[in-house]
Amino acid sequence: MTWLTNLPIGVMLFLALFIVGIISGVAYWFLHSRIGDNRERNGMAAAAYMTALGSLFAILTGFLINSEYATLRQAQSLVGKESAAASRLAWASETLPSVDTALVQQRLGAYLFDSHTSDFKAFGSSDAEAVQNSPGFQSMRELQSISFTIASRLYVVSSISNAMEESTAELTNVRRDLLSIAGSQMPLELLLLSAIAGFALIINALFVALRSGETLSL
């Protein structure tokens, strides 16, 4: 599926129209040559199924679109959360001795840079090794190490220490959640079911169309 989801929207749309068009064309040619004198009877029977098949297709596709869009929105929301957690950590580190502030922020900057340049690319590939070897993994480890080490020191007031620990933990959680989303697959069975419902609807529509003669409508 990776190759398919990597396609640009134009190509994806053309491909979908092409496949659906081919199937519809072949089905039309086949039905037209075989339907013979039963055109009226079949057409009336097919018209009765139109609502049911249309609803089934709409429900299935609606469910899939909603589910996939929710995942996309969740991922986008996690990106926002990552940004917010990074911002909280940066602000919290401000009150540390400057040498510590610089260390925390340097590692935070490195993690965010790696996250943007490497992690998102790795999440998009189907190669699990690419995710494990992403520089973001090592950057996160270094950020965690410095952040928790400094936060645990006695000279850091507890409110700052808590803020640092919480925001670092939040960054870790977000990365794990993004990884989880990246690894999740669309339910192929549901997609298949939806496609079958769609094709059944097309064929059914062809019966209805053939009832009224040679005139076709999309």
Partner: peptide
């Protein structure tokens, strides 16, 4: 139907393809 299927496939991968996550907040940060 073609549009529906293209849309489903398009939004099904948040980190690749035409409808993917916008990482610019992280880049800005």
């Amino acid at each position: 139907m073609a549009l529906d299927l293209a849309l489903i496939v398009g939004i099904s991968a948040p980190f690749r393809g035409p409808f993917k996550v916008d990482s610019s907040p992280v880049e800005t940060m």
